[in-house]
């Protein structure tokens, strides 16, 4: 899948959650959203892209994905 498109999607999700003073809540909202609606191959793809350092993620998107990637590494 086109990783830049995945980046665009997750940034869009993050922008819609970034609407209050509580940034942690926004990060949790994005992470939960991705957990509920994204298929595993999409995670794998964006995780690979993030590893290249080229992913132009918003801060909230980046924090949510970092959290999810760690979570997936733990659960295998």
């Amino acid at each position: 899948m086109e990783p830049t498109k995945l980046v665009r999607m997750v940034n869009q999700i993050a922008a819609n959650w970034d609407c209050g003073p509580d940034q942690a809540k926004a990060v949790a909202g994005v992470a939960d959203h991705l957990r509920r609606f994204w298929s595993p191959p999409m995670f794998d793809e964006i995780a690979r892209y993030i590893a290249t350092g080229d992913a132009d993620l918003s801060p909230i998107a980046e924090r949510a994905l970092t959290q999810l990637i760690e979570e997936r590494q733990v659960t295998g």
Partner: peptide, 8 residues
Amino acid sequence: DPGYRIPN
């Protein structure tokens, strides 16, 4: 886990 949506 969720599967692909149509655009995916």
